[in-house]
Amino acid sequence: MTDRNEHRQQACGFRGRGLIAHERGAMIPRAFSGTVIARFEHAVTIAVSGESLIMALVTRREGMSARALLLPALPRELRTGAAVCASDGRARFGEQPRGRSSEWVARTLTPAPAAQATAAAGGEIDFAGAPWYYGHLSAAPVTSCRSEQMVAPVPPPPALIAGLLEIVREHGRGGGLLGLLDRRRENVFSAFAARLLGIKGARRSTAEYEKLVGLGGGLTPAGDDFVMGVLAAEELGAPTLIDRDAVSRRLAHAESTTVVSATMLRLALAGMFPAYLTAVGAELTAVPAAMRDAERRGGPARASRELRPTVLRALEYGHSSGTDALVGLLWGLTGARVAAFGSVPV
């Protein structure tokens, strides 16, 4: 096990031919085995044996999630089809792990003939001592305990929500569900989403949000990003709009969405969100008193200035994923009224 101090000293993130993870998602098990199913510029996704959730290795902090390891780089060997196997917080890839346990009982668990061939070159990732990433949006996540004894989170003040809306409208990327906030940005997906939600210019807060799961382009379809945003709003104290059991049931159907997106939504249902969204959440909740002060001193315009850098970074995530998640967040924070009024009802 890597000593935590030693871990901190490995600032560059490399040791020998191995990598040291900067951060470790809370839902990454100590031991797992899997196969790389896709490699992107800043991420590798891994199907984990015996689990429905995939996991990811990412190199950008904003893509960090509870099922990801944040790495300084993605080794070349982590190509599609590569095996990844971890135990005690060390993941090995590109070669078949060997140990005395794999040699037990020649009669029964003899390694397959092919395994006796020379192992391919591989590498190692040490994540045992990496700091944990939980992805919680508030100190008392709604999902982790709905006990009456818990203090309910206080939703962000209206000025802050209005500021968020202004930035999303101005800088949000089209292609997904931005059309739900701004008719000028409507496209085939947002029009279909509006239909599924039963929106005809009037408020509707009892929509079946689970129907949006899987809607839209992208590896995480826009509808999924949107639903995650609404779930995030609930975590921040907004009224409940989503029937979580219905979303779970929908996700149970393999055809409902991509495996990457299903993982993202399952984590969101458990109160765990990607880093780009938790950063926005932190801005919205960290210092409510200061925000109330901002509201007093400058209203939405000032709040918008305070939020701008973080929100712009979130909007840059994916193609339209960041935008769609923030559209969902706004939708949730306003109790679905943002579509009807085109502004934040105060």
Binding site: F192, L196, G214, L215, G217, T258
Partner: peptide, 13 residues
């Protein structure tokens, strides 16, 4: 032009 993964709802669309 629709470029999307073949999820149930996208197929419906």
């Amino acid at each position: 032009a629709v470029v999307a993964m073949g999820t149930e709802v996208n197929l419906t669309l």
